[in-house]
Design a protein around this nucleic acid. Structure first.
Length: 792
RNA sequence: GCCGGGGUGGCGAAACGGGUAAACGCGCCCGGCUUAAAACCGGGUGUCCCUCGAGGACAUGGGGGUUCGACUCCCUCCCCCGGCACCA
């Protein structure tokens, strides 16, 4: 028996798979149905901002086990790979290193590809795409133009999140606790002209369709919360002095009789209108300016501030004149940017009223019935919502309304490393799309690409100055680039048809593979990437480009790999995948990362753990070699070892297929190996060894392949998944548990299928049971073939 | 504050429809092999008690409940992790 040499074995089989293109799959030939058993397995693609860390190893090893499992169960499995190579992560890495983003990104991609090959992951490399390649971003630009044509992309002046460190606008989804998702700098509010995708047009569908997909409940919650649908009413408050109505949104129209003041957001255009020409104008404008510029974080945590405008609005319910204030606790981006304040029943309004000594009028009593509300007194508040909405609506002073927290996705970035937005600004023609046949708008090479507030592309004068595509007069290109999340909103579609030169993808091919059967990635993308991609698919379906409306049918989030209690989000000394492969080999790492516990749970990296799996692989190696010296097992051989093997086949298959758990299958095979090593000359020894190797192949594909040849076979990666023989799963005897008053007192071996009466008889025959019965009368609870409980 | 997920040996965990709690692995202890160590092999290992047995009691964050029987279901409290948070 040769020594287990991980490096030699792994290099041998990796070379073999690469030579054959073993994991490449073909699209169905045009006009054919394709394979009815096909499966699209995808893990979120990496940012090439460095090399892979142990978190990636968990993610992709999980996907690898599923890939092998499905392949061997007769599915054609599409399992591609690519790189999210544009955007902040890659560009910031380049800046940090002080080099050219293209060179650094491509160098990182090459090292990651090498790491992936060394891990032995079964990837179809023929479909590899990277977001920064012109052959890819040409189609990102093309898709943008389609969305622009249909009004789903637009440009407007709006308050946006500005990261002062990364010098760019950020989407709402990538402001985390008031800070930038990449660098952690406190985000500022700015009013700028920016590009948006109209994701809000899909608020209801994004919410409703969550019911149709198989996702973790917590992820659905995050998306529901982020969409934040709330039902209520829009009510009109009149400002006599200005001779106009102002609408407010409220979820509690039942409390309108308690509205004792009115508040306008500092950013609201209404502020100017209200104070124009009044003696308080300067004071109010000064407050509004300062308040609007305050960082969101500070604005949320501070004590209430505000100023009285001197003007009044009329409460549509009771006709009272109530003072209009400007205060920064009211947000311009939600509802109408103005609110009716009901201090008796809203905590924020109460705080404000207390701070500024404004009247507080309760309109709902402790029993939940209305008071001081005219003819509505006595009505329950829930019924009052509908009743008051209807009453005001009949009088032309309101209507039922729905509001959402979700805002349109701002996707223009004042940065270099991204897909240029393919439009031109012309003095006469305004925003002019670049014609399709001029795509891609190539990202020019420029010397100083570092962020400086102004988009770096604005300085590329040769590039930016172009004739207007429509009238030919001098015009300027858009200098902003696209958010990296635009690239990753459709990459899974490109994989299906990666080399298409006439379209981003062929609808028939995309419809064939999609939706993705199993998607795996971090929960940190719950409301960013996972929401944007859903929006893209719905929008593209509405444009007739796709025949389905959800991209990810089934979703799984792997846990974090932690070192010293901290998430590993970059490679850390001593536990980088490369160092570990060098020291132990890829197979032990793969099995280690899945054996630690449930894959959706965080795991702590421990050196002891990896030692244990190295030991297990060596033991497997030895025990299988010993079994290989035994004669071949007869088909259907019936020994305890054979039965164990069949039981393990059933358990492993069920665990992976139905339960989607990956740690217990390893335990089950360990049990089989333990039994085999205790019965090395059992007639089923060879069968048990073959079973163990075969079941473990998705986890340790290299050593399993090698051992498969030792057992006299070839090409395990194409071998059908083993099937348990049902007749050998049937037990002839069982261990009957005997309880007295619910406590276990004895266990006896009995044949299966005894009648209840026989089982009770066996129970009563046990001396240990008798010792606890004291001859008393008993009642028996019988679970056939399992347990007898005698109750005194 | 609101919402979601958790709490099981010294440690990672298992127990899937209420039916043997702790499979599998780590660590530790004893033994074998060895000049020795490593590696490897065999055995033991929840806690406590005693009369040391084919013994008993107690054990799944605390308390209570349902049940013949609860890690599992219900109520309540405590703790940990995550998401959201002036969204009217």
């Amino acid at each position: 028996m040769e020594r287990y040499d991980a490096r030699a074995i792994e290099e041998k089989w990796q070379a073999e798979w690469a030579r054959e293109g073993a994991f490449a799959v073909e699209n169905p030939a045009p006009g054919t149905e394709g394979d009815s058993r096909h499966f699209y397995m995808l893990e979120m693609l990496p940012y090439p901002s460095g090399t892979l860390h142990m978190g990636h190893v968990l993610n992709y090893t999980l996907g690898d086990v599923v890939t092998h499992f499905r392949r061997r169960n007769g599915y054609t499995v599409l399992r591609p790979m690519g790189f999210d190579s544009f955007g902040l992560p890659a560009e910031n890495a380049a800046i940090k290193e002080g080099g050219n983003p293209l060179e650094i990104t491509e160098r990182n991609i090459a090292s990651i590809e090498n790491q992936m090959r060394r891990m032995g992951w079964a990837i179809d490399w023929t479909r590899e795409v990277s977001a920064h390649e012109p052959t890819y971003y040409r189609w990102t630009q093309w898709l943008f133009l389609r969305l622009l044509e249909h009004g789903l992309a637009y440009r407007r002046q709006a308050p946006v999140n500005w990261c002062p460190n990364d010098q760019t606008v950020l989407s709402n989804e990538h402001v985390v606790d008031g800070r930038c998702w990449r660098c952690g700098a406190v985000v500022e509010a700015r009013n700028m002209e920016q590009w948006f995708f109209k994701i809000t047009a899909y608020s209801d569908e994004l919410l409703d369709d969550l019911e149709t997909i198989d996702w973790p409940e917590r992820t659905k919650k995050i998306q529901r919360q982020h969409i934040g649908r709330s039902e209520g009413a829009e009510l009109l408050f009149r400002i006599d002095e200005l001779d106009r109505d102002v609408a407010v949104f409220t979820t509690r129209p039942d409390t309108v009789f308690g509205a004792t003041f009115f508040v306008v957001a500092p950013e609201s255009p209404l502020v100017d209108e209200i104070v124009d020409g009044t003696e308080r104008a300067d004071e109010v404008r000064a407050y509004a300016r300062v308040a609007a510029a305050r960082p969101t974080e500070e604005r949320a945590s501070r004590e209430k501030t505000g100023v009285f405008t001197g003007r009044h609005a009329i409460n549509p319910a009771n006709g009272e004149r109530i003072p209009i204030w400007v205060a920064d606790y009211v947000l311009m981006q939600y509802g109408t940017g103005a609110i009716m304040a009901v201090p008796a029943h809203d905590e924020r309004d109460r705080e404000f009223a207390e701070a500024f000594e404004l009247p507080i009028v309760p309109v709902i009593d402790d029993a939940g019935s209305l008071v001081s509300s005219g003819s509505f007194d006595g009505l329950g508040w829930r019924e009052a919502i509908a009743a008051i909405t209807q009453w005001l609506s009949e009088r032309g002073r309101g209507k039922a309304a729905i509001n959402y927290h979700l805002r349109d996705w701002s996707f223009s970035r004042q940065r270099y490393w991204g897909a240029p937005i393919p439009v031109v600004y012309c003095e006469d023609d305004g925003i002019v799309p670049v014609p399709d046949d001029e795509l891609p708008v190539l990202l020019p090479e420029i010397e100083n690409y570092r962020p400086k507030g102004e988009p770096p592309l604005a300085q590329a004068t040769d590039w930016i100055n172009v004739p207007c595509p429509r009238c030919g007069k001098p015009a300027r290109r858009e200098a902003d680039t696209m958010d990296t999340f635009v690239d990753s909103s459709w990459y899974f579609l490109r994989y299906t048809d990666a080399h298409d030169e006439s379209a981003p993808f062929d609808r028939r091919i995309a419809d064939y593979w999609m939706p993705i059967d199993q998607y795996i990635g971090g929960i940190d993308h719950a409301k960013g990437h996972l929401l944007y991609s859903r929006f893209f698919v719905k929008a593209l379906a509405d444009l007739g480009l796709l025949g389905f409306r959800e991209p990810f049918q089934r979703l799984f989030h792997q846990g974090w790999v932690k070192l010293g209690g901290k998430r590993m989000s970059k490679s850390q000394g001593g536990v980088t995948p490369d160092e570990l492969i060098d020291r132990f080999g890829a197979d032990p790492i793969r099995i280690y990362i899945l054996f630690q516990g449930p894959a959706d749970q965080d795991i702590d990296w421990t050196p002891d753990g990896i030692d244990a799996t190295v030991r297990f692989v060596r033991r497997l190696w030895r025990v299988v070699h010993e079994a290989a010296a035994q004669p071949a097992s007869a088909a259907g051989v019936d020994t305890p070892l054979a039965r164990k093997a069949h039981e393990v086949i059933a358990r492993v298959t069920d665990d992976i297929e139905r339960r989607f758990v990956f740690n217990t299958p390893i335990s089950a095979v360990m049990e089989l190996i333990n039994e085999l090593s205790k019965a090395p000359e059992d007639p089923a020894a060879r069968f048990a060894a073959e079973t163990a190797v075969s079941l473990l192949q998705p986890y340790v594909p290299h050593v399993a392949e090698e051992l498969w040849t030792v057992l006299g076979h070839a090409r395990l990666w194409e071998e059908a998944w083993p099937v348990a023989d049902a007749s050998l799963l049937q037990r002839e005897t069982i261990q009957l548990v005997l309880q007295v008053n619910g406590k276990v007192r004895d266990r006896v071996e009995v044949p299966v299928g005894l009648s209840e009466a026989e089982l009770v008889e066996r129970a009563k025959a046990s001396p240990k049971v008798q010792a606890h019965l004291n001859g008393d009368e008993v009642r028996a609870i019988v679970v056939p073939d399992k347990l007898v409980n005698l109750v005194v």
